[in-house]
């Protein structure tokens, strides 16, 4: 397996944890893994991306621009912003959820339409999967698990054993939230058919 994955979202959505789960799961089957977060001051609500690269040997911690195999976006504007990271024929998995940035909520800019987001993704993606990750997370009683719902969905596309994912969850999620997160992962995975 040789894969580059881009995870994108907004500070506070749990992108960093999502990337950690993916990287940890890949490590447990003996792959070389590098994972790099690009967030700057993003704890304060800015854009966040996490790059995960899996292969026998990985050198650069960042992927080649326009060469990612997967884009997993937790928010639609961030999906559009990172559409150019995908390689032609790549796969996009997008949470059908909008978080308008301050420029939009204060009325000085416009949020892109769904058609614009779709068009941006269609330029490279062979297939775009949409998921109401926020709805699933809400139905579980905690919107914060949207990141794990989305990772569960992604897991259907990757050839990693279930035990690797469960182990990654156990390692990275605090005990009192573990069952909730395992449920979130399962629901996301089930949604991918």
């Amino acid at each position: 397996m040789k894969l580059d994955l881009i995870l994108a979202g907004v500070g506070g959505q749990g992108i960093v944890l999502a990337g950690d789960l993916l990287a940890e799961a890949a490590l447990s089957i003996g792959l070389d893994v590098k994972k790099s977060d690009v967030f700057g001051m993003a704890q304060r609500g800015g854009s966040v991306t996490s790059v995960v690269r899996l292969a026998r040997t990985v050198h650069s911690p960042l992927a080649r621009p326009g060469q990612a195999d997967y884009l997993l976006a937790l928010e639609k504007l961030e999906a559009a912003r990172n559409a150019g990271q995908l390689k032609p024929g790549g796969i996009a998995i997008v949470c059908d959820y909008a978080m308008p940035p301050l420029a939009v909520s204060s009325g000085s800019a416009t949020y892109p339409s769904d058609e614009q987001v779709r068009a941006a993704l269609a330029a490279r993606a062979e297939k775009v999967h949409w998921l109401d990750g926020d709805g699933i997370a809400r139905s579980l009683g905690n919107r914060k698990v949207v990141n794990v719902v989305m990772i569960g969905f992604l897991s259907r596309f990757l050839d990693l054993p279930d035990a690797a994912w469960q182990q990654a969850l156990e390692r990275h999620v605090p005990k009192r939230f573990l069952e909730l997160n395992k449920e979130a992962f399962a629901r996301g995975r089930a949604a991918a058919g």
Partner: peptide, 18 residues
């Protein structure tokens, strides 16, 4: 050359006071 992504004006998302 990679296929071009349509040029849609995307509002920036800088860090802000929470």
């Amino acid at each position: 050359a990679l296929p071009a992504v349509p040029d849609v004006p995307l509002p920036p998302r800088p860090p802000v006071l929470c």
